[in-house]
Design a protein around this nucleic acid. Structure first.
Length: 272
DNA sequence: AGTACCACCTGACGGC
DNA sequence: TGCCGTCAGGTGGTAC
């Protein structure tokens, strides 16, 4: 479930448990997971070394090694980074295991195997190479408004475009739009500056809340859509029905009453 | 610069 | 129980 709040959680757990501990073994259980490096190179880069720093940018996690190199991890649609004090228990869908000194293991898991791990020299260069936009939570209001405002097409696609803004995926774009009262198909060019400013504040609030809830929908604040993100579910705001619609090839969930389409004349979305 | 579709992968779930 | 279609929070490539 890795959008930005999930990856932020992996980072926090990594820092709490795995930082500065010597890596005593490297077990790669899924060779294709590794891109641009051999299993031997990975082994050599990590074995007997320590992670000394970590960074997150959008959905990417960068783990800095004491040699100055970095492990860059992307989690695809079904990956996670898990830590446990015990090193002997088996972990479902584990693809890479790092056993740490004093016991404990760090596991990169991936059910659908869509994620990738890479060895890199410089996260900033990697971010530029991938043409990732600024991190969705670090960005300033003005830059958000400029970048989103410059897009065309649906506001949902704009929020999800990683080159515009890094970190927001299908789930959180739906949540932001629900909290904003915007229909996901709303064309960006129909949003006034005021609506863009509001969209910025809502984006920050939603991401912040998700991180505080440890990316667990059960702990999201009341009135959030995510725990009710199923076709036919009851809208947590108005009691209406949650609808599903394909937008940009992705399933979008929204409440027709709380997020009405802009009528052809009006330029300002109105909350019901 | 958009959208639409395919590909990469594996698994969970509902219907019959 | 088994088979089948559909869906799933990702990115990247192609064609239009």
């Amino acid at each position: 479930m890795p959008e930005f709040p999930d990856v932020e959680l992996y980072k926090q757990r990594f820092e709490a448990h795995a930082l500065h501990r010597r890596i005593e073994s490297v077990v790669l259980r899924d060779r294709p997971l590794l891109s641009g490096a051999s299993a031997q190179a990975l082994q050599k880069a990590l074995l007997a070394h320590r992670f000394v720093i970590s960074k997150r940018h959008g959905k990417y996690l960068f783990l800095g090694i004491d040699t100055g190199r970095w492990l860059a991890a992307h989690f695809g649609m079904s990956g996670a980074l898990e830590y446990a004090d015990s090193e002997d228990e088996s972990v479902q869908y584990e693809r890479l295991r790092l056993v740490l000194e004093h016991g404990g293991r760090l596991s990169y898991t991936s059910r659908r195997r869509l994620g990738r791990i890479t060895l890199i020299d410089d996260p900033q260069a990697f971010i530029e190479e991938k043409r990732l936009g600024p991190d969705a939570l670090g960005i300033a209001a003005r830059e958000f408004e400029i970048r989103i405002g410059a897009k065309r097409g649906s506001v949902k696609s704009a929020l999800m475009d990683q080159t515009t803004l890094a970190g927001i995926g299908n789930i959180y774009s739906d949540e932001v739009l629900f909290q904003s009262g915007l229909h996901p198909r709303t064309p960006v060019e129909r949003l006034e500056k005021k609506s863009l400013a509001q969209l910025y504040r809502t984006t920050q609030r939603v991401l912040q809340a998700a991180v505080e809830a440890e990316a667990d929908p059960h702990h999201f604040p009341d009135g959030f859509l995510t725990p009710h993100r199923r076709e036919g579910a009851v809208c947590p705001r108005c009691g209406g029905t949650v609808k599903r619609m394909q937008i940009g090839g992705r399933s979008s969930y929204f409440c027709e009453r709380c997020q009405p389409p802009l009528s052809s004349g009006s330029r300002r979305p109105e909350r019901v």
